[in-house]
Simulated scan of single mutants.
Amino acid sequence: MSSNFYESIPIFDEFAEAVRPENYCPLPDDWMVGFSDVVGSTQAVAQGRYKAVNVVGAGVIAAVANALDRRPFPFVFGGDGASFAVSGSDAPAASAALAAMADFSHDEFQLDLRVATIPVREIRAAGRDVKVVRYGATPHCVYAMFDGGGLSWFEAEAKRGRYALPPAAPGAKPDLSGLSCRWGVARAKQGVILSLIVAPHGDDPRFGGLVDEIVRMALAAPSSGRPITLGSLGVANPGKAIALEAAVTTASGVSHARARVSAAANYLLGVIFHVLKLKAGGFDAALYASDVAANADFRKFDDGLRMTLDCSPAFADALEARLAAAEDYANWGAFRQEAAQLTCFVPSITERGHVHFVDGAGGGYTMAAKAMKARFGGGAAAPATAA
Rank of each mutant, 00 (worst) to 15 (best):
V248L: 09
V248M: 09
T249P: 01
T250C: 02
A251H: 00
G253V: 09
G253R: 09
V254A: 04
S255F: 06
H256D: 08
R258L: 06
R258W: 09
R258D: 09
V261P: 03
V261G: 09
S262G: 04
A263H: 10
A265S: 03
A265P: 02
L269I: 14
G270L: 11
F273R: 14
H274L: 14
V275H: 12
V275I: 10
L276F: 15
L278S: 14
K279Y: 00
F283C: 07
D284H: 12
A286K: 14
A289M: 15
D291V: 10
D291I: 11
V292G: 04
V292E: 02
A294C: 09
N295E: 05
A296Y: 03
F298M: 01
R299E: 10
K300H: 12
K300F: 13
K300W: 13
D303E: 02
G304S: 07
L305P: 00
T308L: 14
T308E: 09
L309D: 00
D310R: 12
D310K: 11
C311Y: 13
S312G: 13
S312M: 13
P313T: 05
P313V: 08
A314G: 11
F315K: 04
D317V: 03
R322Q: 11
R322T: 08
L323P: 06
L323E: 06
A325T: 00
A326G: 13
E327M: 03
D328S: 14
Y329G: 06
A330I: 10
N331Q: 04
N331P: 02
W332I: 01
W332A: 03
W332M: 01
G333N: 02
G333I: 06
G333K: 03
R336T: 14
R336Q: 15
